[in-house]
């Protein structure tokens, strides 16, 4: 498989990465190189092999239902580029 400029443009849109045409041109062969290389995995016989689900044999722990956090609005908003009246502010969204 190899990716086209159109596909790269689509992926960039999905990833919310604005890209100039020059950048795109440069990226297409780079991505194709990498993809060609990773495609050697196709040689591996993985019939009947389950995908790895846990890196180490460890079970998911569940925590108790207790309120232990929150009430820290200043910390939450403290690094925000734009915050007003206790809210984060973003360019207006039209639904």
């Amino acid at each position: 498989m190899s990716v086209t400029a159109e596909q790269v443009r689509h992926i960039a849109r999905l990833a919310r990465l604005e890209m100039s045409e020059e950048e795109l041109e440069r990226l297409v062969p780079e991505l194709n190189n990498i993809l060609d290389w990773v495609e050697q995995l196709g040689e591996v016989d993985t019939a009947g092999v389950e995908p790895l689900t846990a890196v180490v044999p460890n079970a998911l722990r569940l925590r108790d239902d207790q309120v232990t956090d929150g009430e820290c609005r200043d910390e939450i908003l403290g690094n925000a580029p734009v915050a007003e009246h206790g809210f984060f502010a973003v360019p207006k969204v039209i639904e």
Binding site: V3, A12, L14, V38, L52
Partner: peptide
């Protein structure tokens, strides 16, 4: 570059061929 590769290998139609395959090889 890595965000692009990562987005691509997870995207519709490619997930099985890339990501699932890789997790199998990882096994």
């Amino acid at each position: 570059r890595r965000i692009m590769i990562g987005t691509y290998v997870l995207s519709a139609g490619f997930y099985e061929a890339y990501f699932t395959k890789a997790q199998k090889v990882r096994s």
